[in-house]
């Protein structure tokens, strides 16, 4: 028979509990190529399990690029955006441009009752006081609400988001920071609608105008762009 297909190799390497058919087993016993690939994938999975939280990469501060430009005397002065925006794991500079009506900046000013939960693990230790807070209100025709706290602790900036009443999704919820210039947005990661979450925010992002906190419902279609299906939203005050 032919070599095992890559997903089968990965499944085997991960030790997923799926028995191979007799044909596959016979092939594997005889095929060095497939066994080598499995071993390679297994080593990679082992390496992955060695990852520690402090392996998450810290972007170089923007002035490093300025120094490179100065030292080399380049004409190219395009700022190199620091390249990690992270929730669970940092993300590269997949900043997405988004064209938002200027009114978007005014979102989040509506008052009302609120009972958002915060992460239970955050309730144990005393929390630093948020430097900015906004309610997250449903967009037209949507249900749910929440609250987002911007927290600065040491050198780190985090956004702590608690949500209530988001419907069980077809797909998943994603948390975004949208710039009030209506042109740029960044993804902070997947938001669990039952527990909320705390997300690392690159320093100075909010002072650059990324103050609109947006939760979107994303279909599991492999497309990284914002689905345009925003559910709740609010704007952090300056």
């Amino acid at each position: 028979m032919d070599h095992l297909d890559p997903e089968q190799l990965a499944r085997y390497a991960l030790g997923d509990d799926v028995p191979l058919g007799t044909d596959e087993q016979a092939h594997l016993a005889a095929c060095d190529t497939c066994r080598t690939e499995i071993e390679e994938l297994r080593q990679l999975a082992d390496l992955g399990h060695e990852l520690r939280p402090d392996d998450r990469l810290d972007p170089a501060p923007p002035q490093v690029w300025d120094r490179v430009v100065d030292e080399l005397g380049l004409r190219e002065r395009e700022p190199a955006p620091s390249s990690q925006y992270g929730g669970v794991a940092p993300r590269r500079d997949r900043r997405r441009l988004v064209f938002v009506g200027a009114v978007a900046a005014a979102v989040g000013l509506i008052a009302g009752a609120l009972g958002a939960r915060v992460l239970s693990s955050d309730e144990i230790a005393p929390q630093p006081q948020p430097v900015a807070t906004t309610r997250l209100d449903p967009l037209e025709g949507k249900t749910g609400d929440g609250v987002a706290d911007l927290i600065k602790s040491g050198g780190n900036t985090e956004l702590r988001v608690g949500v209530n009443g988001l419907p069980a999704p077809q797909g998943f919820y994603e948390l975004w920071l949208i710039n009030t210039d209506g042109e740029r947005m960044v993804s902070l990661g997947v938001l669990d609608p039952t527990t909320g979450g705390t997300f690392a925010v690159p320093p100075n992002l909010t002072s650059q105008g990324y103050r609109i906190v947006d939760v979107s419902l994303e279909p599991d279609d492999g497309k990284p762009e914002h689905s345009r299906d925003s559910v709740i939203r609010g704007t952090l005050p300056t």
Partner: peptide, 12 residues
Amino acid sequence: VSADRVLRVRPV
């Protein structure tokens, strides 16, 4: 703001 105000999105 309604959802359709947001978002023609493209990567930068």
